[in-house]
Simulated assay, not measured.
Amino acid sequence: MSEAPKSPDDKSRIQSFGKMMDILASFTTVHRAQSLAQVAQAAGLPRATAHRILSALREIGFIQQDARSGLYGLGIRLFELGNLALANMDLMREAKPFMDRLSRLAGETVHLGVFDGYNVIVVEREDPQDRLSSRDLSGTESAPAYCTSVGKAVLAFQGPEVVARVTAGGMRHFTANTLASVEALNADLAATRERGYAIDDSEHQVWVRCVAAPIRNAGGQVFAAVSVTGSADRVTPERVQQLSGLVMQTADSISRQLGFVERA
């Protein structure tokens, strides 16, 4: 049976939805707050149209507006829907039992991070039974990709244009160990590709050491990573060598559950 032709009203609604998406897509981690003129220009819309759509999106909580500056930003409702989407992702469901096992074997905290194009977002966390955390970090904690093990595990398998985009805004120093230059980062990423896992040697948090391995989707693209995190006195450089095998095995198991098949 052939599909019925769309009515003028249907076409108008589709166009309106498209304009809404163009406006929402104009906000990024770089352009988090924008004026009406900036939104209109980024979305390719007349200012009057952009203003009308922004007002409608603000009413339903998808957009918020600063009372003092008048600048627009993404609203809390999108965050809530994003968390709901993350909770239903195949990754979350498939990774959970492997993360539980890794945390038990390592005796350390395990994180699952997803790359959003600039940062990594922690979407799941497992703590060992003897060190249960009171914090729920699922879907709420993000960190720069260039100074975390989960971030570097993903960045190592991206194109140079992605690394350039991530570092374009500068590389903030969180600790004395944070990599100081793009050249140093590229060397670290090359080492990560060679050995199959990334190390955060107290680069994001003082006295914290992490080891992470990349997770691939069914198409083979690296989009996430799993890590073991602990204090530097427990996760010593020698122990990193021991944990790396467990972490890589876990990442490989999760990737296979997601449909990845390694080709000879």
Rank of each mutant, 00 (worst) to 15 (best):
P160Y: 04
G151I: 00
S244M: 10
Q34D: 11
G220S: 14
V114Y: 00
T29S: 13
S227G: 06
E238C: 10
A48M: 06
A213T: 10
R172N: 01
L105Q: 15
A50S: 10
S55F: 05
G196Q: 09
V208H: 00
V39D: 04
T109G: 02
G107E: 11
R13M: 10
R209A: 04
L112A: 05
P237I: 05
M21W: 13
T236H: 06
A180Q: 14
S26F: 01
V222S: 06
G170S: 10
I121T: 05
C147S: 04
G170Y: 05
N83E: 10
M89P: 01
A25K: 14
T109V: 06
E3Q: 15
F157K: 03
A143H: 08
T167K: 00
D116L: 07
F98T: 10
S253I: 10
G170E: 11
K11Q: 15
V208F: 03
T49D: 15
A191L: 09
E161I: 07
L54W: 04
Q34W: 08
A225G: 09
E203P: 07
I199D: 02
L102V: 10
G170V: 04
P160F: 03
D100H: 13
R52E: 14
G170R: 05
S55M: 04
G82K: 04
D252S: 11
L78G: 13
L24P: 09
R125M: 03
I23P: 08
S133G: 06
A85R: 12
Y146Q: 01
G61I: 02
V114P: 00
R263P: 02
A176S: 05
R239A: 06
Q15N: 15
V182A: 07
R125D: 02
R104L: 08
P160E: 05
L24K: 08
A37E: 15
N83H: 09
R193S: 08
S103T: 12
I199C: 03
R263Y: 09
M21A: 12
G61D: 01
A198E: 09
V226F: 06
D200E: 15
T192V: 15
A264D: 11
